[in-house]
Structures are given as C-alpha cells and as structure tokens.
Amino acid sequence: MTATSSDRGQLRPGLWATVNERYPGSMITKRDLVPLARLAKPLAESRLTFVSTAGVQPKGTLPFDVAHPVGDYSFRRVPSTATPADLEIHQLKYPTAGANRDLNVIFPIERLRELAAEGTIGGLTPSFFSFIGYNMDPERLERTLAEEIAAAVAADGAEAALLAPA
C-alpha cells in the first residue's frame, strides 16, 4: 500500500483503503462539513464527556457481541468514577497489548479525572460512553447508535466531548 498525502506519518499507512477493500463499503466517506459548535464557557468551567469505540465496559455488563458478523450496535455507560480494575475490554479488531497493562492508553479515565481534579477541565459527566468499532452497516450506526449516544451525551449534561475512534 503506498502512502498518500493523507496518511503521511501514519504508523499503519493506507488503513482506509485496506479496510475498504476487505469490507467493501464499510468505511464512511463524508463530503460535507458539520458547522463547529462553540464552547459556551472556558474548558476549566465545562463538563466533559468521553466517547470510545474501544469496547471498554464495566465488568458484569453484557459483553459486546464480537461474534456477530454484522457487528454490535449497542453502547455501554462507563461511570466516570470507575477504576481500570472495574472495567474490561470486549473487542477483537485492534491491538490491546498496551491497554491490557494500562487502560489509559486507549481509555484515559484516570488522566481525565486528574485533569478535572486539577481544574484544567471543569468536570466530567457521570457516564462516559463506549461501543465497538466493528460494524458492517455504517448507515445503521449513524441512524441509531450515533444518535442514541449523542442524545445520552446531551442528557448527561456534557458541554464538550473527547472521542477516541480506535
């Protein structure tokens, strides 16, 4: 796979083309841009949420469905007070070597709590939000899961959101 201007510096070049060749049509391509929403208050006064596609979930919740050939379109709430020991990962499609030893490399829950305690961030929403990135129906994802999480994020009083698409 040749590197293009769009993946310069990427550790895994040509990822979009590779995934799209293996799973035709599963990758999203948008033409339009969404207008920027603005912070109503400085970050130090804003309540932040975190959204992850890493399959992180509280132990004891129904494991994400990693077997289904079309994917899992549900999400889990992860209490922002949870410790890494309270959480586990159910996901097969990205390397978890680092996360297995320190969850913060993909789900920086302890770093976010520190930054909130220090006042860099105004606060955290009661829940963070988690799902698995593997799905074969991006239209359904956009129609259902994306809207459900966006509604839950708003209902949780988020004033800003950090996302980490795995």
């Binding site: 599963s26 050939p69 079309v70 991006p138 239209e139």
Partner: peptide
C-alpha cells in the same frame, strides 16, 4: 453500505463473496 454489499451477494448467489467475508471476519 457494506451490509448491502453482502445482501446483494446473497441475492445473486455469489457464495465466493460471502465466504470471503466470513473468512475475513473470523
């Protein structure tokens, strides 16, 4: 749209496309 790709393959009886997908998934 990928689900549609698989549905189309199933509709036209394209077992090759479907088994390729199963192997990729597993």
């Amino acid at each position: 749209m990928s689900l549609q790709y698989l549905k189309d393959a199933a509709d036209r009886g394209d077992a090759e496309a479907l088994i390729r997908y199963v192997r990729l998934h597993l």
